[in-house]
Design a protein around this nucleic acid. Structure first.
Length: 430
RNA sequence: GGAGAGAUGGUCGAGCGGUUUAAGGCAUCGGUCUUGAAAACCGACGAGGGGCGACCCUCCGGGGGUUCGAAUCCCCCUCUCUCCGCCA
């Protein structure tokens, strides 16, 4: 959400930003906001004057009552009757106007960074850099579930019976590899100065509406029936939510945290759940990183964050590239976003394994996460988030890139202590 | 699940119809003192918003109500804590 003062003073910049995001349908909202804001301030001027008068007069009545001058008090009471009605009327309008203003402000997109490439949708995202050689071996790479099955490492049939499409059983050494990757990711981030956290896996609606847009909420979040609780779609939700309504001391920044959680997503709309495999699923596990910092540091942190993911994948010798989200593909709350993609030798293309974003102060404004500055002035913090690794999907890249001609999969040295084995060998029944 | 207690500014905590314009402590920030620090003393200090400004308004978990006037009284809801039960 933008600062209303910014919209008031820079309506053209807000309009230009909407055009850059190809959301011209939202252009009239800017004028709507300006009007509501104007009306809101008019109401305040009038109603506050009346309230100030009421306060003074009420005190006068109290004084007269104390002195036993009841008649005089009664007379003043009668004079106030008209004002009372007007105050009620204006107060009601004040609430209505403010609600409408907030609602409208919520759907106006955040101002994107000048460096963001302009484009309509994900087909216009821009590749920035490649890390490692995207190798295509001279033997055929099977579909990832087939690789897993060769190790008796996945049971999708049972998962469909038990929970439905979009769920999975990981079994044996593939499951151990999955857990090992998460543990390695945790220690990898701790080694880079991040503090490890295990957050709540359910959050209340007021936190949900603070961390994401309404559209996302509807298409992503599972609600617990009969309770004001939602299953998190990523630990970013509970990790950023941790600071709702807080005023942080400036010296406590930056907060650099890494968290583990299962993630639950409806995946309504867009692409839907894939028939076979663990690419797009309703439940997965993820190691995440978040940063809460001063506004002037957020771009520096943005670059440091995505690089962590690249380094993580490179430490396991998986080729990756970075792809910058163009303006039209950028979620409304985001200032800038970049995907880390891993190489798929089977598909001979890269696919998304992580997403790094800075939301500027938009998320902090919604959640009222403020910083108490050294000079006594308060300001909204900047928030960032990035994936370290989400193993079910990441396993696809891992298995495809490390598959040997004999059907085995080698475990990189960095992972061996976490896995407890050196190699996945076909038909290795557990 | 049962019973009880509670929700007040960054934090602790008073207030229970009009001298509260939210006391006081702690923390924080200035200053005095000191070689420096600590201690002591003096002062500042809640959040959000409106106004060019002098100033003003809103906020005591949320929502209704009573009243000229509500942190304070009434109703509803939510949450937290303690004890019991259950449980990894």
């Amino acid at each position: 959400m933008l600062d209303i003062k910014f919209v008031r003073e820079n309506p053209d910049a807000v309009r230009e930003n909407i055009r850059k995001k190809f959301q011209d349908g939202k252009l009239p909202l800017v004028d709507k906001v300006l009007e509501l804001d104007k009306r809101n301030r008019e109401i305040k001027t009038e109603v506050e004057t009346l309230r100030a008068k009421r306060k003074t007069v009420s005190k006068e009545i109290g004084k007269l009552m104390g002195q036993g001058k009841k008649d005089e008090a009664e007379k003043i009471k009668e004079e106030m009757a008209g004002d009372a009605a007007r105050i009620d009327e204006l107060s009601a309008e004040e609430v209505r106007v403010e609600e409408e203003l907030l609602k409208t402000m919520m759907v106006i997109p955040n101002i994107i960074d000048p460096s963001v490439p302009i484009g309509k949708n994900d087909t216009e995202n821009v590749e920035l850099e490649r890390f490692g050689e995207p190798v295509v071996p001279d033997f055929e790479i099977p579909y990832h579930t087939d690789i897993m099955e060769s190790f008796c490492g996945i049971d999708l049939d049972s998962a469909r019976r038990v929970a439905g499409n979009g769920f999975y059983y990981l079994v044996g050494d593939v499951a151990r590899l999955h857990s090992g990757i998460l543990s390695y990711a945790r220690d990898f981030m701790v080694g880079r100065g991040f503090t490890y956290c295990v957050p709540p896996f359910m959050i209340r609606s007021n936190v949900v509406s603070g961390v994401m847009s309404f559209a996302e909420m509807d298409s992503m979040m599972y609600k617990i029936e009969g309770e004001d609780l939602y299953l998190i779609g990523t630990s970013e939700h509970s990790m950023i939510g941790r600071f709702i309504d807080q005023i942080l001391p400036e010296e406590s920044l930056p907060l650099a945290l890494t968290s583990y959680s299962p993630c639950f997503r409806k995946e309504k709309g867009a692409h839907g759940i894939e028939e076979r495999g663990v690419y797009r699923i309703h439940q997965f596990e993820k190691q995440e990183m978040i940063v809460i910092c001063k506004p002037e540091d957020s771009m520096m942190w943005f670059d440091r964050l995505w690089y962590n993911t690249v380094d993580f994948f490179r430490s396991m010798d998986i080729p990756v590239r970075t792809l910058e989200c163009c303006s039209g593909d950028l979620a409304d709350l985001k200032v800038k976003s970049l995907d880390v993609e891993a190489w798929s030798p089977r598909q001979k293309k890269y696919f998304e394994v992580g997403s790094c974003s800075t939301l500027g102060d938009a998320q902090a404004r919604r959640l009222r996460i403020r910083v108490n500055g050294k000079d006594g002035k308060k300001y909204f913090a900047h928030t960032l988030n990035n994936t370290v690794v989400a193993p079910p999907r990441m396993l696809i890249a891992f298995l495809e890139n490390r598959l040997q001609a004999d059907g085995s999969v080698t475990i990189p040295d960095v992972l061996k202590p976490y896995c407890g084995f050196d190699k996945l060998v076909p038909n290795n029944k557990k």
